[in-house]
Amino acid sequence: MNNFIMRYLILTIVFCTGLFVRGQEAEKTAINEVLTNWHKAASNADFEAYFGLMTEDGVFLGTDAKENWQNEEFRTFSKPYFDRGKAWSFTAVERNIYVSAESNFAWFDELLDTQMELCRGSGVLKKQDGKWKIVHYVLSIAVPNENVKEVVLAKKVYDSILKTRLKRIKKF
């Protein structure tokens, strides 16, 4: 291969790589905005904006073991909180966003300042009609490792009863 063709190929690869990286960064910026606006909508009790940023088949997993909310159930559960004028207030203090090579799916994790102190949120978004929407969200309370024993003791009876009930109605 002659020198000219080799240089051309190298420059093309460098150029395309730069476009890909800039594209990924733009997607991450858009996703960051969606997540921030989603949390803001809850804080401002804007029901339509909040659920408008989720897919119709979106799922929200809450901190309670029984909180596996499909979109319609989550809307029903959440509506009274939004109707009161303030649902909940989560503010990200740290967020990591990852985008698929095709830029049609993304996943993230975030550390949140909440009324429950620090919580961890994570989830999946997909691009729908050119807009990022939340498909799946998981909220968990961040427990320092040195406090796990006390937390486990505090929830032992509740979890034992729930596990027994769930084993009876196993769905998988």
Rank of each mutant, 00 (worst) to 15 (best):
Asp113Gln: 09
Ala92Asn: 09
Arg7Val: 09
Asn71His: 15
Val138Leu: 13
Arg75Gly: 01
Ala30Gln: 12
Phe82Leu: 03
Asp64Lys: 13
Ala30His: 04
Leu35Tyr: 00
Gln128Tyr: 11
Leu35Asn: 01
Leu139Asn: 09
Thr76Trp: 04
Gln128Thr: 13
Ile134Lys: 01
Trp107Cys: 06
Glu48Pro: 02
Val99Pro: 00
Ser140Ile: 05
Val99Arg: 00
Leu61Gln: 10
Lys126Gly: 03
Ile5Met: 11
Ala41Tyr: 01
Gly52Ser: 01
Tyr137Ser: 09
Thr164Met: 10
Ile13Ala: 14
Lys149His: 08
Trp69Asn: 04
Lys127Leu: 04
Cys16Ala: 12
Gln115Cys: 02
Val138Asn: 12
Thr17Ala: 13
Asn96Met: 11
Tyr81Asn: 11
Arg75Cys: 03
Lys28Asp: 02
Met116Thr: 12
Met54Arg: 03
Lys79Trp: 04
Glu72Pro: 02
Gln24Ala: 07
Lys66Cys: 07
Glu94His: 15
Arg7Trp: 13
Ala154Ser: 15
Cys16Asp: 02
Phe74Val: 05
Pro80His: 06
Ile161Asn: 08
Thr17Val: 13
Ile31Met: 01
Ile10Gly: 04
Leu35Met: 10
His136Glu: 10
Val34Cys: 00
Asn68Ser: 11
His136Trp: 12
Gln115Val: 09
Phe47Thr: 02
Lys171Gly: 04
Gln115Glu: 13
Pro144Lys: 09
Ile10Arg: 06
Phe20Thr: 11
Trp38Cys: 02
Trp132Cys: 01
Phe74Gln: 12
Val151Pro: 02
Leu9Gln: 12
Thr91Cys: 07
Tyr137Gly: 06
Pro144Ser: 06
Val138Glu: 09
Asp46Glu: 08
Leu166Asn: 12
Val151His: 11
Ile10Ala: 14
Val138Trp: 07
Leu53Lys: 06
Ala49Lys: 07
Ser100Gly: 06
Gly121Ser: 14
Gln24Trp: 03
